Simulated scan of single mutants.
Amino acid sequence: MTDESIIIALINNCLNYLIDNSINDPVDILRYLQKNIVTGRELEMSSIETPTDGDTNFISVDRHELIETAFDEVGALTDLRPTLEVQFYGENAVDSGGPRKEFFRLILREIKEKYFEPIRPFAKMEDYETIGKILALSMLQNGKIPQFLDFSLVNELFESSSPSLVVLNLRKGLDSLARTLQGTHYLQKENIILRIVICVRSLLIGSSLPQFRHLFNTKQPVMTLKGAITMLKPKFSEPGSNKRSLETRVYSVFTKYLREVSSGRRENISLHSILMFATGADEEPILGFAVGPEICFSESETYNSFLPTSNTCIHRLTLPIPSAEKDLPTNEILFHLYDLAFANTYYGLS
Rank of each mutant, 00 (worst) to 15 (best):
I6N: 08
N13Q: 13
C14A: 09
Y17P: 04
N21Q: 09
L30G: 00
V38N: 01
G54H: 03
S60H: 12
E65C: 13
V74G: 09
A76R: 14
D79H: 02
L80Q: 04
P82M: 04
E85N: 13
E85V: 00
Q87A: 07
Q87G: 03
Y89I: 03
D95K: 07
P99W: 11
R100K: 13
F103P: 10
F103Y: 13
F104Y: 15
E110W: 01
K112R: 14
Y115N: 10
I119V: 15
R120N: 15
F122D: 15
A123P: 10
D127P: 01
E129R: 12
K133Q: 15
I134M: 13
P146V: 06
V154E: 01
F158W: 12
S160D: 14
S160Y: 05
S161K: 14
S164Y: 08
V167Q: 04
Q182H: 11
G183L: 04
H185R: 02
L187A: 12
I192F: 07
R213W: 02
F216T: 10
K226H: 08
M231D: 00
S237Q: 09
G240Q: 05
R265Y: 08
R266G: 00
A278I: 06
T279Y: 08
D282E: 15
I286V: 15
L287V: 11
F289T: 13
A290C: 12
P293M: 01
P293Q: 06
E294Y: 05
L307M: 11
N311D: 12
C313M: 08
L317G: 05
L319H: 08
D327Q: 13
L328N: 10
L328A: 06
Y346A: 14
